[in-house]
């Protein structure tokens, strides 16, 4: 197996080599520009994070998790309904997007003929959908759920909107993961008498799971920070109860932060900053999980 899976050494030369290898002024100047671009991006991010942290640090306590939002006493407003709302919506998103996305990718990668017009059409659409602005998914989901008779501002409607949003990412990630599974595994499985479906179920898909998981978690961490499609669906800003089902009204963290940040009272700005930090850590945490899975996968290989 080792011979099969060994990575071919990367052909691209690392940028640092330019200092030692190519000593022309142009390449050095280009290197400096690249470093400056990187520094600029990181600096802006750092300023933003430090600024938010300074503003919100006083409000990062247990009340942020246990209290509901409050108009009367913004000093004690919490994000409880928003945190649980995000969990419900993202859970629904995952349950919708992962099975559909993985199935679509498995079809395109393992079953569809390279010449199939239908597969080509689907593939083109997936690529186009990945570039569609998030709010369009909100409009699409709004129209879709109303058509099937579900009220717009419900957990399931939010889940559908976000699932549509991340579906292209899940499909692309899954295809990449499936493509990385060595062809020999499939051939061996087929040679031993397994059907193509059995090969997919028992060999190809399990081998691709780490890659799929990484891509899916990254997609979900994008969805968790998304406000625009949910605002369009009518995500609520004032909820003082926990969501209790797929047809429950909801608010999510980005929506709640958006609402707080637009208020005039300074106390709302503070709690908005505190909730932003919480969201930031959540996204970092999710990305961390993705990185851990990927690293485990690469080292074991």
């Amino acid at each position: 197996m080792a011979a099969v899976t060994a990575e071919t050494p990367s052909a691209t030369r690392p940028l640092t080599a330019a200092v030692h290898g190519d000593r022309s002024m142009t390449s050095l100047a280009f290197l400096v520009v690249l470093w400056l671009c990187l520094a600029f991006g990181i600096l802006v991010l750092a300023v933003l994070i430090v600024n938010t942290f300074l503003e919100g640090r006083e409000r990062i306590d247990t009340t942020l998790f246990t209290n509901y939002t409050s108009q009367i006493t913004p000093e004690t407003a919490g994000a409880r309904a928003a945190i649980l709302g995000s969990a419900w919506v993202i859970g629904t998103t995952a349950l919708l997007a992962i099975p559909i996305g993985v199935a679509a990718a498995a079809y395109l990668e393992e079953f569809a003929s390279r010449k199939s017009r239908f597969a080509h059409f689907v593939e083109l659409n997936v690529q186009n959908l990945a570039a569609v602005p998030a709010i369009i998914y909100g409009m699409l989901a709004a129209a879709a759920v109303v058509a099937i008779g579900i009220p717009r501002n419900t957990v399931i409607a939010g889940g559908i909107a976000l699932a549509l949003l991340i579906l292209p990412v899940v499909i692309v990630a899954t295809r990449e993961a499936l493509r990385a599974v060595p062809q020999e595994i499939r051939q061996a499985s087929l040679a031993l008498g397994a059907t193509p479906m059995q090969t997919l179920q028992r060999q190809t898909l399990p081998a691709a799971v780490p890659g799929i998981a990484t891509g899916t978690i990254l997609a979900l961490s994008r969805a968790i920070g998304e406000a625009a499609p949910l605002l369009l669906l009518g995500g609520l800003v004032f909820v003082k109860f926990d969501p209790n089902g797929l047809l429950s009204g909801f608010t999510t963290m980005p929506i709640q932060i958006f609402d707080w940040a637009s208020r005039s009272q300074a106390a709302f700005q503070q709690v908005a900053a505190a909730a932003s930090i919480l969201l930031l850590f959540l996204v970092i945490g999710l990305n961390g999980v993705a990185i851990v899975i990927r690293n485990r996968y690469t080292t074991l290989r």
Partner: peptide
């Protein structure tokens, strides 16, 4: 072997999300 290590992790994540979601009190 590798394939077995990733699947539970992914399942655990989905499960955790679902559990959190179900933890809400009834309203």
């Amino acid at each position: 072997k590798i394939s077995r290590s990733g699947a539970p992790a992914a399942l655990a994540l989905v499960g955790a999300l679902t559990l959190t979601a179900c933890g809400g009190q009834q309203a």
